[in-house]
Design a binder for these strands. Structure first.
Lengths: 192, 192
DNA sequence: AGCCAATGTCAACGCTTGTTGGCCTACATA
DNA sequence: TATGTAGGCCAACAAGCGTTGACATTGGCT
């Protein structure tokens, strides 16, 4: 049996495997699911396309392995209540600029069901619990977290994917200054 | 010369042409650019794929013909100043639910350069002038209009494309109630 | 009726895609 | 040093793609 996986043991092929994942993330982020071909990814990683199949089974499997997102959301309870909006927006900008994985996920999620579900899962499993720690009424938590995601993903969409010039030009600090009160309100303001 | 086009004259093939455009919009909206194949569109329209080529030249040409958006933005100067946020949000929801063309444009724009430029052009040519009529400082108009587009497109993205359950579930009136103040502030509040 | 262009059908082209299996190479272990 | 196995490359497959050109059919015109 090739490729049994005693979970901690390093394999001789690990450099190739991560080269494939890196190339895959880059291509998915730049091109989306369909146009990111296995052949192009393999070319970027300087290996044969069949290696991708050997290590990740299929294109879907490669995508699943390449796009694993940890938003690393900070503990908002340690902050003064009126600063959580600003903290969230800056943190999201950090995450988005740290690497390409979020851009990849967004580009893919728009045309690929599996990608959409994964994006959905990330916001459900990571943003929702954080929202729970700051929202007054537990019943409103999903809606309030969802509202935050509309604004945050809208910024990412126009800034990093569609690249609307005025949004790209907008200095980071100014974007934060404008969006922070919005997110703050979605999380903490009384239901309108 | 086949297909000269005296602009007003109806052609015998007009029913076929609009059938193609309808099917194209539907497929682009559901699948994005790559997965919306000419063959599938032709099948939906019950015609031969070669007719698509005859009438629209290429897939790019078909897309250009199928996705023409008029946001039909209302005259905001006729409104009390504090209601323009709500008016804009409701109008955008109307537009988005009226037909599939905006969803098609968003799905395509995320992975297709031409689509992204078209989306960009729509907001530049249609939203910007409206913003000019309500913004205090002309110099801030592009940034403020862009901020509005981040929130409006973020809502459309999560509600109509990624279909985040809490956003889909959110009653229309509630979405308006939450977003209206945001848009209102982006357009009219003093620079933070 | 007879012509001609517009409309539609059919089959094929060249190309790219994801995916597969066979084969060679190199290393870790015995 | 011998050997088994993981790593890697190559060539090929079937399917699907956008696109093309040759051919049949229709319908409005004189």
């Amino acid at each position: 049996m090739p490729d049994s996986k005693p979970p901690g043991s390093p394999r001789r092929s690990d450099t190739t495997r991560t080269a494939i994942l890196d190339a895959a993330r880059e291509r998915f982020a730049a091109d989306g699911y369909e146009r990111a071909t296995i052949r192009a990814i393999a070319r970027d990683a300087s290996i044969d396309p069949s290696m991708v199949m050997r290590y990740y089974g299929s294109k879907e499997g490669l995508f699943a392995a390449a796009v694993a997102v940890d938003l690393k959301l900070p503990d908002l309870t340690a902050l003064p209540r009126e600063e959580i909006g600003r903290a969230l927006v800056t943190h999201f900008l950090d995450m988005w600029e740290e690497n390409e994985v979020l851009t990849a996920l967004l580009r893919v999620g728009v045309t690929n069901e599996a990608g959409a579900e994964r994006m959905q899962g990330i916001f459900r499993d990571q943003l929702l619990p954080v929202a729970r720690t700051v929202c007054p009424d537990p019943e409103q938590v999903p809606a309030r977290a969802a509202l935050c995601s509309t604004q945050l993903l809208g910024l990412a969409l126009t800034r990093y994917v569609l690249r609307f010039p005025p949004v790209v030009t907008l200095p980071r600090e100014e974007a934060v200054a404008w969006l922070a009160p919005t997110v703050q309100r979605y999380l903490t303001a009384p239901h309108p």
